[in-house]
Design a protein around this nucleic acid. Structure first.
Lengths: 206, 206, 206, 206
DNA sequence: GATGAATGAGCGTTCATTCAT
DNA sequence: TATGAATGAACGCTCATTCAT
């Protein structure tokens, strides 16, 4: 028996975390490929190679895996964002939040940028992956927060937050579909767009 | 067999178009109420009062009705949009497109603004109704078109279109959830946001 | 086309009633063999040879077929019993009720006397078939009714009804297991037992 | 390893019997609360706090625990009954057997009188608890035995035993549902009913 | 012997789709 | 063509049972 027994873990625990991860990974993929609604628990377990019943040793439902995934994403992104909220002016905050968001997406995208079943009427569903949704919600909170604390323009704050998020999200999505993925350029664009609109971008007019 | 069959379209043809319409109407309602994913063919035919099999004489699947609905929406909105493309400068075009879009949405929204299954992890799915999706695509085409013909700022046109659309869509969605529905205010906001960004909206800064 | 079309029925209707009957028959058998609790919807449909989904075109659940079966049994036995309630004294009533009950059982028993899975701890479950249960309830009502109307001995009527039923049921069960089935003898025994007890039966004592 | 292992049964043996008892107790409760059919092995082990697999070190199936429970009940009741068989005449035997049976039931009933799932088509299933079933079987044996040894009336002994048991069982069941539980009154009734029938009970006739 | 995760059959049910009428 | 019952795959989920630890 090894004397480092204290740091080792039983094989059982090992396979347990492996399985849990396998399910999470499979779920991430499946949600990404099929969308939350379409995805089924069976799709997920099928992909893990585990038995049907095993899924329920880890999660009680599709909703629950989804939540787990979302928590995970949020947990990892939240501190990044939180660090930004306090310092600097609004413009800076926006820029840094966008940059953080885009980089986070770029890091993670391999998983969730997966193809969609082509022919389907998928209608522009963004951030379908739970992590994305969670990250998205974080960004949104941050922006609304900033706006409400007066660090942003005094306009219809709900519309503003919605618009900012929308731009970040869409541009982020497009960014991920290009090769190479250029987060800096995308962030530049998104920030300009958010802060100054199209007119801030243009050299030539009609 | 009635002898007046000769003076009009055959009864057959009549009921044929009636049925087709009934299915489309039912589908619109059902998609609006349940969402595309959740809606089932059964839900649709149930609402028509027709027999299950009859559905398949008109459409081969849920996807197909969806597409038909989308075509319909697009067909009705396209001319509106087309009228705008030629005249005026880009700013005007954007404003008018947005206004047209918002008004179209407001007119139609009764159908598709219907409740969503509340507790669900719904994640920002916009334009769930086929007409909306189609209208959306039209707007997008128009913007990209304008941009590419030089009637807009010379920047990354894909990002630009995406961003414009994103703002229009999100703000439009939010608009529909308020009472009263104020398309003018929403359009003002969206246009300002698109053209000048947050800084164009603000009086006070940090 | 036959001119007696008015009395014929479409082939569809025909198979519909056939299927409904097939399901009822299968259900009766299955309940008889497995018991209500153990029986599954799938057991029932499996026996019909129909597809799984077909069951649900006829009944919404196991409970519902059960109820249908019970209704059927009760409907057929109730008039027999009702005819007895008014006339005669209590002894006569008891005798005739028992006779009616036993004969009814004997007529129907082929279905529900079916074997039970031998090794199971089945614990003396009588009348497991819905028809039986229904018939039983009828008998019970009749007896309680008679007792309460004073046509019976003034004792604890609940105990009395329970005891009468118990004897009828048990003796009836045993009767069905013998060959040939002798309803007269069984009825004689049961009536004597109910009216006079063991001492009424005996010639010799210890 | 403790050196006091020698002075008592091994710890192993101790926990072994403890576990066995825990399972039996849990099973008794569960059967009482849920009924034999509805109860699952999982229900039983859940209640013991033991691991799922442990169950199978003691019993191979639900049926087996049931049998064990029944044996237990029978084992405890058998001597009581046996004491009665030899002495006295048949009437006395019947009375004493019934009294013993009713008192045994009343003593134990806390466990197995537990609620049944109310709305269910439960159909008069008696003696659902294994002990009850076993005790019941004992009584039945005793009666048949007495009858066959000539200590009872010379009639159809199978019918007689069945009828006696039936009365005892039903009246016993009803007795347990009343408050206060009056074993004496119930026994009086049952004995009169068994020995003299309804006519033995009655003051007034039709 | 105790553990408890894995297994996979099976359950009730819904659904898209077919096809005889 | 319309009908609507039949079909059977698939779904979410539970369960008895096994077996590596």
């Amino acid at each position: 028996m090894p004397d480092d027994a204290s740091i080792s873990v039983g094989k059982r625990e090992q396979t347990k975390v492996q399985n849990r991860l396998a399910i999470l990974d499979a779920a991430r993929e499946v949600f990404g490929e099929l969308g939350y609604e379409t995805a089924t628990v069976r799709d997920i377990i099928r992909r893990t190679g585990l038995a049907a019943g095993t899924f329920y040793n880890y999660y009680r439902s599709k909703e629950e895996v989804f939540a787990a995934l979302a928590d995970d994403g949020a947990r990892r992104f939240a501190p990044i964002l939180k660090a930004l909220r306090s310092k600097g002016n609004f413009d800076t905050f926006v820029r840094e939040a966008i940059v953080a968001y885009f980089e986070f997406m770029a890091d993670e995208h391999i998983t969730w940028a997966a193809r969609r079943p082509a022919g389907e009427p998928h209608i522009h569903v963004q951030g379908e992956t739970p992590e994305m949704a969670a990250v998205f919600a974080e960004v949104k909170d941050a922006i609304e927060d900033a706006i409400q604390r007066g660090h942003g323009p005094a306009s219809d704050s709900e519309y503003m937050a919605a618009a900012c998020i929308a731009v970040a999200r869409e541009v982020g999505d497009k960014m991920l579909m290009r090769r190479p993925i250029d987060t800096a350029a995308a962030a530049d664009f998104a920030v300009d767009m958010i802060l100054n609109g199209l007119n801030g971008l243009r050299g030539a007019e009609v």
